[in-house]
Design a protein around this nucleic acid. Structure first.
Lengths: 124, 124
DNA sequence: AATGATATACGAAGTTTTTCGTAGATGCAA
DNA sequence: TTGCATCTACGAAAAACTTCGTATATCATT
């Protein structure tokens, strides 16, 4: 259920570009790093067997689609990450991230709005 | 440099309890899961070779100390995680975490304070 | 001195993840 | 129709991580 790092790379391509062939995914990945065509193929076949991807015959090749959504996957990954890296303390993670990374004013405002809503919930 | 999951477990024990023997670390880990004594020993030896831990003879046994701090390690882990899971978007991670996890009012207030400071910085 | 408990070191098996070579099928162009 | 490009399937090597058995040394107790 938890995608590995290599699997995550492929999911990101599919989430960004929609259903794609192995060739398309490989072309995309190749821009960032060295990876053989059959490596990408094999990974996608494994992911298909695991149920992470679906696929459809498309002439001589296959078109693959992500079965899991980006949001669901990220939710799972965050859960694990909070556990293993922060021993369950989500707010510690948030503090760490906010202190460490730049964000635009729009993003900060968005976060503040979310925080206000959370605060209101708590007060009820 | 990046600790594996098993290594992270051991680091957490050392961060929480300070310098410890293999026995102490193993006793601690055993509370949460099945793990052989020699497994813990081996892991700590490997971590020593990697430079993640230092150690000191203490009679017949060794006392191990974390070389890396919890903060530095978490900073590294967060960087990687933002990259692999959120393709670099730290604020997306924050939103996801805040929406997903419960936090106490104190924690939320703390985060808001931090946010206000960040906002002020941006406005200058 | 013998025994039992406990320590390290070492090697290696077991798992999971990543990578790719090779074989065989199919399409296309000369 | 021959040959080149491109696809899948398959197997298996390579790498990274986890686990533990066994040998050996040392300490404490009888």
């Amino acid at each position: 259920m938890k995608p590995t790092d290599a699997e995550l790379e492929i999911l990101h391509v599919l989430w960004a570009n929609g259903p794609s062939t192995v060739r398309q995914v490989h072309d995309n990945l190749s821009q960032n790093r060295d990876i053989g065509y059959t490596t990408a193929l094999k990974l996608m076949q494994i992911m298909y067997e695991k149920g992470l991807l679906s696929r459809e015959e498309d002439g001589r090749s296959h078109t693959y689609t992500a079965v899991v959504t980006e949001e669901d996957t990220q939710r799972n990954l965050v859960d694990r990450f909070v556990e293993t890296a922060f021993r369950g303390s989500a707010s510690k993670l948030v503090m760490q991230v906010l202190g460490q990374h730049k964000a635009s004013r729009e993003e900060l405002d968005e976060i503040k709005t979310l925080l206000n809503n959370l605060n209101r919930d708590l007060l009820d």
